[in-house]
Design a protein around this nucleic acid. Structure first.
Lengths: 147, 147
DNA sequence: CTCCCCCTGTCAAAATCCTGACATGGAAGA
DNA sequence: TCTTCCATGTCAGGATTTTGACAGGGGGAG
């Protein structure tokens, strides 16, 4: 299907292309992760926790661009599946630090290879020398909008 | 499997940046459109119908990257608000062609200026000469993933 | 013509996500 | 000290979206 606009407005709709690419990625990840027993938000959460153990619910929510409430549901699911652990209380503050379990690490590593394959497919679709510029431009766009 | 490119944390991955940019855009559009009485899917639908009048529910769904069922809900909302019209039956086939009403056109034009301002903000955030390459790369990524 | 496949619209149910709200804990300032 | 403000976790409700399923219409192969 053709873009919603001829090349007349803001030099082609960036929003449309962004949405299209994001939708394609989301679809591919969803399919690959489903076969491995994870949802996309769950995977994002595990990946974030692997790199930065001890993150709280609110911090994970910000890191994955969802609300605290949504992340709360995700965390409960992961806890139910014994992929993460979270203390019931804490002696200082209110934030409850989450940590990966061994099963969580294993599940993450299995899913990661599938996700990396998808990412490689995406990256290989355009000249490799443009990657850095692409990442930088995406970042600047998000920052310009207050992301 | 090795990572698709050197990266020491998840923020270096294309998927993360893509999600971040898409989330920022979605948030900005959501806020601007809400003040003008439209949701993001509704706006996308109106924009598509303005360029290609007579599109069916399924075609609109594909054009906005949602399911037929979701678009069906959107169309009902737009119909309820008298922003589009749809025949109850058709003499040939099963697809019901949708058309903008005059009110729909007016609402769209009002919303469009706000959305264009957002896109302009995004585009101005990076060197203008990179725009064409960015659009092309986003398109290739989507294509590579079967979008 | 008939069978088969694909596309379409739609219903129902579930999953997911968000908005609004509230109570708690900590930090900074009067 | 205490008071105000911010951030956090959580509950409830609703809005949105998806999955699964069904029936109808069209077109091509046999």
């Amino acid at each position: 299907m053709a873009p919603p606009h001829p090349a007349h407005d803001v030099t082609e709709h960036v929003g449309y292309r962004l949405k299209r690419a994001a939708a394609a990625l989301r679809g591919a990840m969803d399919k690959a992760l489903r076969e491995r027993g994870l949802t996309v938000p769950q995977y994002a959460c595990l990946e974030l926790l692997d790199e930065r153990p001890g993150l709280s619910n609110a911090e994970l929510a910000r890191g994955t661009f969802v609300t605290r409430q949504s992340m709360n549901v995700v965390l409960r699911g992961l806890q139910e599946a014994d992929l993460i652990t979270r203390p019931a209380t804490t002696d200082h503050g209110r934030a409850l630090p989450a940590h990966l379990t061994e099963a969580g690490r294993e599940r993450l590593h299995a899913a990661r290879s599938a996700v990396y394959a998808i990412e490689r497919t995406m990256v290989d679709a355009f000249p490799q020398r443009r990657l850095a510029a692409l990442l930088a431009d995406l970042d600047r766009m998000a920052e310009a909008l207050g992301g």
